[in-house]
Amino acid sequence: MALKNKVQSVVVSVWRNNALFLSCSRTISTFATGFDNKILKSPSLVSLDIPDVWSSNSAGYSESSTYKPAREHTARVIDGKQIAEEIISNVANEVTRMKKTIGKVPGLGVILVGERKDSLTYVRNKIKACEEAGIKFKLTEFSDSCTEDEICDAIMQFNVDQSLHGIIVQLPLPRHLNEEKIFDVLKLEKDVDGFHPMNMGNLAMRGRKPLFIPCTPKGCVELLIRYGVEIMGKKAVVIGRSNIVGLPASLLLQRHHATVTIVTALTANPEEIAREADILISGVGVPNMVRGSWVKPGAVVVDVGTYPIEDTSCEQGYRLIGDVCYEEASRVASLITPVPGGVGPMTVAMLLHNTLLAAARKYNFV
């Protein structure tokens, strides 16, 4: 009987904690909205929730596009770097206002495992951006051979550090490490990468809003909105279903009322499916996989993939290319993101924005 009572106590405790987080996620629009519209163009997810009303001609026949690109056609480039700089500048203004108003600044803790070239580049960019925005930055580094317990201990130290409002673990991790175990340790209210199951769940459910939207998909949609791309009612194809990009990107596009198809490594006809997309997003890290023949004329192409290739002419000895064969796709698409300079800078900008949101919630700063 004592054991049964103890179990019931634990269950009630967990339920109460979850209920608190759910309540927080439902009412989150009452916090930190004073500055949010100054920084992002993306609307609140809950404001997008409208009922599905099927009309009698919803499935009516529509002729295929007759768009024919000119021989010299070149897609307009989506300048993620420029937009990210604007967003970071706006975040910096709010950080300055927070410091003057309440004497606090947002803080971000980062855990880096190993010496992957791309991960090192991303972390350097995050440090630089935090410095520009006035956000405190704390980095803990581990070797490739570290254990899960070492990483979990570092996360728990960040969890209790009152000066840190956001925590991220730079991905990917070495194969011997269990990501699920590691992320289970991270406090929900500091999960600025948006990978916690409750954040993902609330992203998927209409009527709910996650505490944080994953940074890369959030950046992709912000780019689409700022470039005037209509999402509602359009066909979107997402190549890849990772927890970092593919899955949350598909969920977020659905919340914006796109008709979404996910292409996986097992999809039998990926080229044919991709060619149906009005909006094509790829994030699998396979260089030049998406050829020009995969792109519907006039489509919007968002390349999330990054792959380092050796290049002695570059200062770092390598350069990054994406999933999309840029030279081919740019002759067919209407809009396209470059690699680098497209989605990458936006991911960093969204991370800073999420960190600002985390601090604003903690201090009830509007």
Rank of each mutant, 00 (worst) to 15 (best):
I111L: 13
I111F: 06
V113T: 04
G114Y: 06
R116D: 15
D118T: 10
S119G: 06
L120N: 13
T121Y: 14
T121M: 15
R124Q: 12
N125S: 14
K126T: 13
K128I: 15
K128Y: 12
A129S: 10
E131V: 06
K136G: 08
K136A: 12
F137M: 03
K138W: 02
E141F: 06
F142L: 05
S143R: 13
S143C: 08
D144T: 11
D144P: 07
C146Q: 01
T147M: 04
T147N: 10
C152D: 05
C152M: 15
A154K: 01
A154P: 00
I155V: 11
M156C: 11
N159A: 10
V160Q: 15
V160L: 14
D161E: 12
Q162L: 10
S163P: 03
L164W: 07
H165C: 09
I168D: 05
V169D: 10
Q170P: 02
L171E: 06
P172E: 11
P172S: 07
P172L: 05
P174V: 09
P174H: 04
R175K: 15
L177M: 03
L177N: 07
L177G: 05
E179L: 09
E179H: 08
E180D: 13
K181P: 00
K181C: 02
F183C: 07
D184W: 07
D184P: 00
V185W: 00
K187L: 12
K190Q: 12
D193N: 03
D193I: 07
G194D: 02
F195G: 01
H196G: 02
M198A: 13
M198I: 15
N199A: 00
G201C: 09
N202S: 10
N202F: 13
L203A: 04
A204I: 09
M205S: 13
M205I: 12
R206Q: 12
G207I: 04
R208Y: 12
K209D: 11
P210Y: 03
I213C: 03
C215S: 05
T216Q: 00
P217D: 04
P217A: 04
